[in-house]
Computed example of a mutant assay.
Amino acid sequence: MNPLQNAEQAVLGSVLLDPEQLAHLPWLAPDHFDRPVHQALFAALRKLRDDGHHATTAGKSVPLSWVTDAVDEASLHVRGLTAVYAHTLISACPRAGHAPVYGRMVLEGAIHRSITGHAIRLHQAARADALRGGVEGALHCADVLNGVLDDLAQRWGSEPRPVEPAPATAPVTAAVAPLPVETGQGVEDERFLLAVLADRPKAMDEVVGWLRPGDFADPAHGHLYRCLGALHHRGEPIDRITLLWEAQRRGLLGDGTLSSDQFAAICDGVGSGSAEWLGEQVLRSSVTWTAAGSARTVRALAENEALSPGRLINHALHALGPLDDVRTRWQAASGSPAPAPTAPVHSPNGPPPAQVHAALARSTPRPVSPPPARPGSAPARALPRPPSRGHG
């Protein structure tokens, strides 16, 4: 049993039974359907409506040509569609008037698929950037994903904002780790940078404003950089002895975080080179593996079918937060221009009209129950049921 396929069949069956249901589905697009045959058929039904097909003004009885013309139009774009399948869709629809609810289910499935696909592309771009030593592809895909999340929020009728998932619903993903391609040259750059900072303390001024301990692929290097930052912040002298003492005070030697061989390899190394340039290489690597980690988290969220679209969008925005932070620091370090904001500026008086329209279009207000009749009053006359629409 596939609930999403049943929903796609039901919404198409609703429109085939009652063309007027298209007026309640302006927020639903053909590419929101998973199956190509359903995409083509929904696009054909919208085209017939826009072209003024006589079935849209036929009144109570819908002519059979509404079905046959829709099949003929859709068959121009997809193969294997027959009138028999169209009537199967009609029989799969419990109630034509529930089309907005069926359409909401289709949109939910499309939101999960879209976010999953863009998360996969972000991860692939991060790996490719790590191989060629760049960040442009990953940052572009991150921009696209942010724009997609904002557009999906508008369609769903919610306000996009980062929200941390609750521990019970947080995705179970592996800890963010550097990409395999980063563990070679990236770790070497970190070692050279620490050697420069230990040998030339004034070089800390070149990187301390935008480089963070979490940007180091090797955790031991990150802890040692934190020790250098603490000495620099307190204005204490930095050399091999003071750095070793700070590491010992922080327990890095006792718990095995930093070995004596690692410390010797850094402090006995050649402390020559540009700290700013080496810091940029470390930060560039941090951008790519942070992008990959955010992509894995977003994908895990999107593959959780229990998450509603609004929560999924907000949790995905939260998962992109670490990438936004390291990206801001990368732009400050490299002098790259910041991208133009893609999120719309919302009115302080409430959500945008497009969001309100989408939210209302997806929900049918409950009928108000009549007040109970007073004792002695005549019972209200039942209204006659309107005749059901059928194919003539």
Rank of each mutant, 00 (worst) to 15 (best):
residue 8 E to V: 10
residue 13 G to W: 01
residue 14 S to H: 04
residue 21 Q to M: 09
residue 23 A to M: 08
residue 26 P to L: 07
residue 27 W to T: 14
residue 35 R to S: 10
residue 42 F to H: 08
residue 46 R to G: 13
residue 46 R to T: 11
residue 55 A to M: 04
residue 62 V to M: 04
residue 65 S to Q: 09
residue 67 V to P: 05
residue 71 V to N: 03
residue 72 D to E: 15
residue 77 H to D: 03
residue 79 R to T: 14
residue 84 V to I: 13
residue 84 V to C: 00
residue 84 V to T: 13
residue 96 A to D: 06
residue 99 A to S: 01
residue 100 P to Y: 00
residue 103 G to I: 04
residue 108 E to N: 14
residue 112 H to Q: 15
residue 114 S to W: 03
residue 114 S to C: 13
residue 118 H to G: 01
residue 120 I to H: 05
residue 121 R to V: 11
residue 126 A to F: 12
residue 128 A to G: 12
residue 131 L to E: 14
residue 133 G to W: 04
residue 138 A to R: 02
residue 140 H to C: 02
residue 141 C to A: 13
residue 144 V to G: 00
residue 151 D to V: 08
residue 161 R to E: 12
residue 162 P to A: 10
residue 166 A to G: 06
residue 170 A to M: 08
residue 174 A to Y: 05
residue 177 A to W: 00
residue 180 P to T: 04
residue 185 Q to A: 15
residue 189 D to T: 06
residue 193 L to D: 09
residue 197 L to I: 05
residue 215 D to P: 11
residue 216 F to A: 06
residue 219 P to A: 11
residue 221 H to Y: 06
residue 221 H to S: 08
residue 223 H to I: 00
residue 224 L to K: 03
residue 225 Y to H: 10
residue 230 A to F: 00
residue 230 A to G: 03
residue 237 P to K: 06
residue 241 I to M: 10
residue 242 T to C: 07
residue 243 L to V: 08
residue 243 L to G: 02
residue 248 Q to D: 15
residue 255 D to M: 03
residue 255 D to F: 10
residue 255 D to A: 05
residue 255 D to W: 03
residue 256 G to Q: 05
residue 258 L to A: 01
residue 259 S to G: 14
residue 259 S to Y: 01
residue 262 Q to R: 10
residue 263 F to H: 05
residue 265 A to H: 08
residue 269 G to T: 07
residue 271 G to R: 07
residue 272 S to W: 11
residue 276 E to T: 08
residue 279 G to D: 07
residue 282 V to G: 01
residue 282 V to E: 01
residue 285 S to F: 01
residue 291 A to L: 12
residue 292 A to W: 09
residue 295 A to L: 07
residue 295 A to M: 06
residue 301 L to T: 09
residue 302 A to P: 09
residue 307 L to R: 04
residue 308 S to A: 15
residue 312 L to V: 03
residue 313 I to E: 07
residue 315 H to R: 07
residue 315 H to I: 04
residue 320 L to E: 07
residue 321 G to D: 11
residue 323 L to P: 05
residue 324 D to M: 10
residue 327 R to W: 09
residue 334 S to E: 03
residue 334 S to V: 13
residue 336 S to I: 04
residue 340 A to T: 13
residue 346 H to I: 08
residue 348 P to A: 09
residue 352 P to S: 14
residue 352 P to D: 12
residue 353 P to A: 12
residue 354 A to F: 03
residue 355 Q to P: 00
residue 355 Q to L: 11
residue 356 V to S: 10
residue 357 H to L: 13
residue 366 R to Q: 02
residue 367 P to I: 06
residue 368 V to K: 11
residue 369 S to Y: 02
residue 369 S to K: 12
residue 370 P to H: 11
residue 371 P to M: 08
residue 373 A to T: 13
residue 374 R to D: 09
residue 379 P to E: 12
residue 379 P to G: 09
residue 380 A to L: 07
residue 381 R to D: 09
residue 383 L to M: 10
residue 387 P to D: 15
residue 388 S to E: 15
residue 390 G to D: 10
residue 392 G to R: 15
